[in-house]
Write a protein that binds this DNA or RNA. Sequence first.
RNA 1: GUGGCUAUGGUGCAAUGGUUAGCACAGAAGAUUGUGGAUCUUCUGACCCGGGUUCAAUUCCCGGUAGCCACCCCA
Length: 465
Amino acid sequence: MFKRNIQPKKIEEKPKVDGAGEVPVKKGKAPPELLRGFRDILSDEQARWTLVRDRVRALAEAYSFDRIELPILERADLFARTLGKQTDVVEKEMYAFEDPSGDLVAMRPEATASVARAFVNHGMFNLPQPVKLWYEGPMFRHDRPQAGRYRQFHQFGFESLGVPDAIVDAQLILIASRLFRDFGIDITIQINSIGTPESRAAYLTELTSFFRPHRNKLSEDDKRRLQKNPLRILDSKDPAIQEILKDAPQIIDWLDEDSKQHFTKVLEYLDEVEVPYQLNPHLVRGLDYYTRTVFEIWEAGDEGERAQNALGGGGRYDGLVELIGGRPTPACGFAVGIERVVKALADRNVSPEPRPHARIFFAQLGDASRRVGLRLFEEFRMVGIPVAEAFGKNALKAQLEVANKLGVDYTLLLGQKEVLDGTIIIRDMDSGAQEIVDATKIVSIMQRKLSVAEGVNRPKQDVVQ
RNA sequence: GUGGCUAUGGUGCAAUGGUUAGCACAGAAGAUUGUGGAUCUUCUGACCCGGGUUCAAUUCCCGGUAGCCACCCCA
């Protein structure tokens, strides 16, 4: 019967969408399908999502980052210019299309470019620096779906713009590591420095010539990478390449003096606040705008075991704001994939107590009782007590079954008799004890009853580790 | 984009080249026309799509699609 109710009758009558021409409409009974790589996040997952979002918000406030909301759609060239035309994210994975007015637009594959754009658009260089912003929302990449990888996924991110000092980098890494400690997820911070564009160029020449004699050992993929983005070959998973890489020049040795000092300072600050990290000379990042510090957050324990072990990543992007037309502004930030965090929480069986939807159930018998119930709901709502009901059911038995499943503490019973008497019955669902009280006092009585139990089973610091 | 594995009610699992495709959970109704958590009864509900082989395909084969896993890439 469920299926029968959702037959898309109306859709077939309206096959047109303004400006987009004729939209073909599937005939027949096939239910509408979810787009590949897209998903519904249902209520059974919501507790974890809420946990993540709440903690992120709390931490952002603690470190005085301001929330920024950015549009999902941007001009496509914003991403091409900043992430790099050659990168996979832009070249193959971007949802880019012409909108009805003919503009080439793209659904954002990440948010840092938008943050920089907003910084320029709104003259944020006039604000006290650094400008510290955080965001959270969906991102879109047309990649092949896999564990922990979706075409619509969610990230939160922290960005700090305007200050070049290494301490900014360190603070961001500190925040990230605090966050995961809060979550009870063991991570390692993988860190590296890729210097300035100039020093990197020199290194790349060196790296390319180092690989020249090994050319015949390279796979097609690696050859292509060496051509297009030689840095990427550093994190190749091919054991043969890994072997060769042992003797390869390291980017650290090719850093310019300033970058080297900057990196040293970042590490010193991290030592200072006792944030552990792993120097990873092979860590590179896929987006062009990074300079100097780059880091990734890996789930501990299974380094290299899982393909999607990066929970987040970030780094410094000193050239980005200038690149999109702002004045030169150093900046640093990181982003974290919420799906991956939620999955890590699930893997660890961290489940925040499902938020009690309601602790009171209202059971009614007869129409008069239902009317009273409607009004009662308003009264409870005004004092902030959620109440559940099952108006669709009439048998008291059935209503109590629902109340039981919901796990409420009390059920209020209201029948014809009580309506006439101006009373209401309170049933304690644990003991089964019932008392009859004055209906006009029910709200304050329940307030008192619930606040007594409050201290006991209030889910608060519910992360079990 | 490449490769491997998989596809049965809402969920989790069976079985089968041939008659009503079975079980558990969930859902609905009932065993007291005003009392839940147990038990019992009844009911609802599925072979991903297309083609091929065959007298006959949910079952075998091919293709598509989707999911998972790895590569790639990244969060």
